[in-house]
Write a protein that binds this DNA or RNA. Structure first.
Lengths: 210, 210
DNA sequence: GTCTATAATCCGATAGAC
DNA sequence: GTCTATCGGATTATAGAC
């Protein structure tokens, strides 16, 4: 039963953290939300900072679980597209936890993040690197450099959607967003440029000829 | 003289905001920086919240100023690339101000954002729409739908860089980031796919043939 | 318009009873 | 494991003298 209370604290803490930020987050308000008194929280977490670090760890754990599902796909391209879908699925299913992964550093406290969390972050990046690398090997992607471009495109779309910046363009439901993500990813892979694009970028960027 | 003092407060406030972020910002620290005492600030701003709203307005003003510089370029494509550069330039020069433009509204204080700020946000989106539209008209971009893809790609890259997620890939300076942004944008316009891409996306996505 | 002084509130964390 | 009580400190904001 002890871990059940811990879980309840952690859930409320995640919500409060994303609403109030690191400094705005208060152990007292958390205690009120959970329905206990403040000192009781210190039976489960050594300090405010430690508690918040656990939230970040949980976020990475859930994201990783979703990503690794893509490994059951059969081709590099399917695993790569599956990874993007899993990434977005995690973000839409856990919007607050997703926000945690990209919160401004100023809201993550003064101290440095524990090594365990840094490890989780590296693992996610490595996962995407691996997906891209095997796509390059099979000729589906141009080169390893596209990892940044694709991650940026995916994270950017998710981020804009979750903050309502795509509503003016008619993207007002998860279904429409998933459709946009699929079509936008395909377009990015094929090129956003129109018929006149080659003339514009072909002669002043050596990367185009490589 | 009265508005001059106000300006001095606002400048220091912006600076402190850039250093400490939304939560770390304190009226007392601001008073110390300006060289007056805290109560004096309340002669010029009704509350901390009102003062911070003015800072958000300042953020949009700086972003817009950077964006509009791109209008002096001579072709739609140059104006569009210039807009992306200006967007990133603002973000790198004012990282904390950039963050606030994408923070959930719940973290911007209790009340609703002033209408003036909402107007600024819409103006920025309209600006990007216009840049894409004239690129479509001149055949440099495929269609208006790429606005989301390009904004997402740019915002995503900036966001990943500012949170240190690109350091493992050797992007550890603003100069390297600007170079990555240029190359990644060009690649996205031309397509990230390799020689085998058409076979993968050509038959199960009708958008490819359009 | 700025100051000193202060009210009122909130915070993280701990001690010790139960 | 949770409680009451409390320390030491921070904050926003106000009152009233000058």
């Amino acid at each position: 039963m002890s871990s059940e209370t811990r879980e309840r604290i952690l859930n409320s803490a995640t919500e409060l953290y994303l609403r109030d930020g690191f400094d705005g987050f208060s152990m007292r308000a958390l205690a009120r939300a959970v329905g206990v008194t403040a000192p009781a929280l210190y039976r489960h977490f050594a300090s405010k900072e430690k508690l918040l670090h656990e939230i970040v760890g949980e976020a990475y754990r859930r994201l990783s679980a979703e990503l690794y599902k893509a490994l059951s796909e059969r081709t590099p391209h399917d695993r790569f597209r599956g990874a993007i879908r899993g990434y977005a699925k995690f973000a839409l299913a856990n919007p607050k936890l997703y926000d945690v992964l990209f919160l401004p550093p100023s809201m993550m406290g003064d101290g440095v993040l524990p090594e365990e969390i840094e490890g989780h972050a590296c693992a996610v990046e490595q996962f995407f690197d691996d997906r891209v690398r095997e796509c390059v090997a099979s000729g589906v992607l141009r080169d390893e450099l596209v990892t940044s471009s694709l991650w940026a495109h995916t994270h950017g779309l998710v981020s804009l959607y979750m903050r309502g910046h795509l509503e003016e363009k008619g993207i007002d439901s998860e279904e429409k967003f998933r459709d946009l993500l699929e079509r936008s990813t395909t377009r990015v892979l094929e090129g956003l440029g129109g018929p006149a694009m080659r003339a514009v970028t072909g002669d002043d960027d050596s990367d185009a000829a490589a």
